[in-house]
Amino acid sequence: MPLPEPYDSWFPDAPIDGTYGYDRDALLAVEPVPPPPGFADLWHGWFAASRTVRPEPRLTSLDRQGAHDLYEVEHTGAGGLRLRGWLALPSDGAARVGVVRSHGYGGRDEPGFDRVPDDAAVVFPVARGLGALNVGVGAPDTAAEHVVHGIGSVETYALGRCAVDLWHAADALVEVAGDLPLYYVGESFGGIGALAVPWDRRFVGATFVVPSFGQYDVRLGVECTGSGEAVRRYVAEHPEARDVLRYFDTSTAAGYLRIPVRCECALWDTAVPPPGQFAVANAVAVSARAGSSGAGVAGAASSGAGASGYGVGATLELQDLPAGHAEYPGKDDDNARAAAATRAHIARCLER
């Protein structure tokens, strides 16, 4: 079957139709997955346990990048692992906000400041096992092995441990920069932020870019070129793992968000199927509608300390991307507009 326009000319050799047969209306109709029993209690419990761990950050000064002084940071993560990443502070003046800037499954070899305001302190965590800094620490270093590591148990699954590590990275940032309101930015694999942010009231907003791990009911039924293919094949041979994955569906967790959220979802993506991405955005939209009508929703985030945006309720800002995980005409301009939109979203979250 021929690919739809313009993808037939953009990606003539694509092994998969990255629309998966969904047009925009169909994507907006993809339902998030309801929570399994004990979902909120599990994540609340993990967050409460994380509060007992001291981050003990250790900084190594590097150089100045633009408006920021850059450091390598080592801090304690879940299970006592010492994880490395980068941390940056405004070179001139005090920070107004703290940004937790996660990464994709390619890991991170260096920090990127395109979505970071000049007056933000920012931590660039590197997930256990990944990137230039944490290879060999706590998980395998290839996406296909990492994404199924520990999948035999809810308590050991790598995605859950990496989501918990985001709280510890935020703790390291706060200990260095002070008790700031926090904002999360994550793309692709960084969609794990949707698992972590709902339970931590320090976060006042978030941006999710082509978020992964949403709507496993759909994802497990289709082939892809990303890490989800390793999960699909694993579950086909070990169907009991499906019960573990129910506690790590980002479309489920996103329904618990009570803050302004910006989602950038691709209409074409062979690595992270678009219906999974839009399921995350659709969960936020459901939460926003329920909040505005006074109706009950799946559950409320209630743990955490410090500045909180949860009193304002969920809102969704949705941007369609022509394609994700691929080069296409005009992508650089789209990226620049999206980065500016995230910075503007951060400013609006701080004004609420």
Rank of each mutant, 00 (worst) to 15 (best):
G190D: 08
R233C: 11
T252Q: 10
E175Y: 05
V116H: 00
P125W: 01
N282K: 09
A230R: 11
V261R: 04
Y7R: 02
H75F: 15
Q277G: 00
A120V: 07
S251C: 07
G150I: 01
G131S: 07
P274C: 08
V209Y: 12
A144M: 06
L173F: 08
S308Y: 01
Y20N: 04
N134T: 03
T142F: 03
A314G: 02
G131R: 02
D249G: 09
S9N: 06
A121S: 12
G324C: 03
A314I: 01
A170F: 04
A127D: 15
G276S: 04
G304F: 03
G296E: 14
H68Y: 09
G291P: 02
D165Y: 03
S9P: 01
V210H: 00
A172K: 01
V100F: 00
R54V: 11
G191C: 05
Y234D: 13
A139S: 12
A169E: 04
T76L: 10
R242M: 09
Q215K: 14
A281R: 02
G93V: 10
S91V: 11
R54Y: 08
L83G: 01
P329R: 06
R201G: 12
Y184V: 01
E264Y: 14
G112L: 13
G79C: 03
P239Y: 12
A271N: 14
D171P: 05
A144Y: 01
D114S: 15
P111Y: 02
L166G: 10
D243T: 14
L81C: 03
Q215T: 12
E155H: 14
T76M: 07
R115S: 13
A172V: 05
L59M: 09
Q215C: 15
R242N: 09
A194Q: 00
S303C: 12
V100K: 01
A281S: 13
W43R: 05
G93D: 10
D320N: 04
D217Q: 13
V235E: 10
V122Y: 01
I192L: 15
L245Y: 08
R262K: 12
G299S: 09
A120Q: 02
F278C: 06
G306C: 03
Y183L: 10
G77W: 02
S50H: 03
C263V: 15
P55D: 09
G38L: 09
W199S: 08
G21D: 07
L130C: 02
A266H: 04
V312K: 02
V154M: 02
R115M: 13
R84Q: 14
L3K: 13
A266M: 06
A88I: 04
F278W: 09
A283D: 00
V272F: 01
P140Y: 02
A285R: 15
G106M: 13
V261C: 14
P57Q: 03
R289Q: 13
T60Q: 14
G150H: 00
A254Y: 04
L70V: 15
T315N: 01
V97D: 00
I192R: 04
P329G: 05
G205R: 08
A241G: 11
A295L: 14
R219I: 09
R262T: 12
S251A: 13
E327V: 14
R242Q: 12
A177E: 00
